[in-house]
Design a protein around this nucleic acid. Sequence first.
DNA 1: AATAGTTTTATAACATGTGTCAATAATGTT
DNA 2: AACATTATTGACACATGTTATAAAACTATT
Lengths: 213, 213
Amino acid sequence: MSRREEAKTFNRARICAAAESIIRSEGMDNLTMRRLAVVAGVSLRTPYNLFGSKTDVLIALLDEAVFKFTQLGLAHSDGAAIARMLRALGQIETFFDSDETYYRGIYAAIMTSDHPEVRSTSVDRAIASARALMAEAMSNGELRADTDVQSLGRHLAITLLAVLGMWGSGFFSNRESMAQVRRAWLAVMLQHCSDTSRLMLAAAYDNPSNIGD
Amino acid sequence: MSRREEAKTFNRARICAAAESIIRSEGMDNLTMRRLAVVAGVSLRTPYNLFGSKTDVLIALLDEAVFKFTQLGLAHSDGAAIARMLRALGQIETFFDSDETYYRGIYAAIMTSDHPEVRSTSVDRAIASARALMAEAMSNGELRADTDVQSLGRHLAITLLAVLGMWGSGFFSNRESMAQVRRAWLAVMLQHCSDTSRLMLAAAYDNPSNIGD
DNA sequence: AATAGTTTTATAACATGTGTCAATAATGTT
DNA sequence: AACATTATTGACACATGTTATAAAACTATT
């Protein structure tokens, strides 16, 4: 990396750190571009040079959060594909619990920004993950052979993202949001599961508390 | 109604009409408070006096749309409760199709406004409707006796609203959005339906096209 | 009709995201 | 070292939602 790129990377990091610090100590409302420039020790124009817009700065913070989460999630990713998928919900909930106002604030800010194009990357990412997991479930015999795993994976991912949108708006607690997704996921999965996974899914649907632990 | 209230009502209507006209002829981006004031023939301050904020003006437009929709929906509301509930999705889709950019524009603008409190009324309304329908379904014997209709109604309503949120962002077409809700609804309903409705629901789940017509 | 109360208007102002543009500094290249 | 390229800075400007303030218009009450 050239020195120019190094400097850019360093400044990007400084700006992200400043943004995070402002959100934490002064709240989302006080994250203005002028304040961000001051705290980051940079001119007002620089965040625009390095990120493009305020929303893009927030997306960088969200990416950091997603990265942190994936690191956690991969730690104990053993077991059947469907079970892992369900367990992910508990992991998301735990992750949100660990820093609720911060994550919700970032997410809400991005969602309420009028840069619609920024959301499609996370949608694509989520759909791809869900499809991969469902494809794995299929090859493990966890799903009925006539299941369209592409369609199922897409449906499950959209379910999650749609509820996350409402979560970001502050309607539901972390727990309520994940319970909503869990119920929706289990019901749809029950329509496609093979006999090997049906009992587990049916039991999980009837007793929401003991899923994925 | 006193003359003062009459004048207010008249001005409110003028402002709403102006807002709708601007959105239709110049697009959502050109709906600024200054332009709205000019087109409505009113001072910049008046919309704030009469509505409170720009978002509140848009909410008034959405309320008009919801009212128009409910009038349509009630016209042919016969049949079993579950069937009516499913048919509502088709009606929503038709309604959106009839004026897509307008409704989506309003909805998106409200959703991306940072007035979170405004959304709770529509949430409450949707949950109440869904609960009423599910209660009716229960008393008709369409649901298993051990079903918690409150919880089920709430779940179904949230499913719809969550997907509507994404619809507003422009990700999905009207059809895709409703198909997503339909699939989710059918799967969950299949977990709670009695034998009388199971066949219809299972058939609908397997063949998404012939629902609610 | 006179007075008091309320609403609208006109104008200005403020904060914010974002853009412009020239000047300056830093870096890469010869 | 000299030049060219690129990045940052600073100062300003603009559009927008929103608020402030005082004057004017309107309505209600006596």
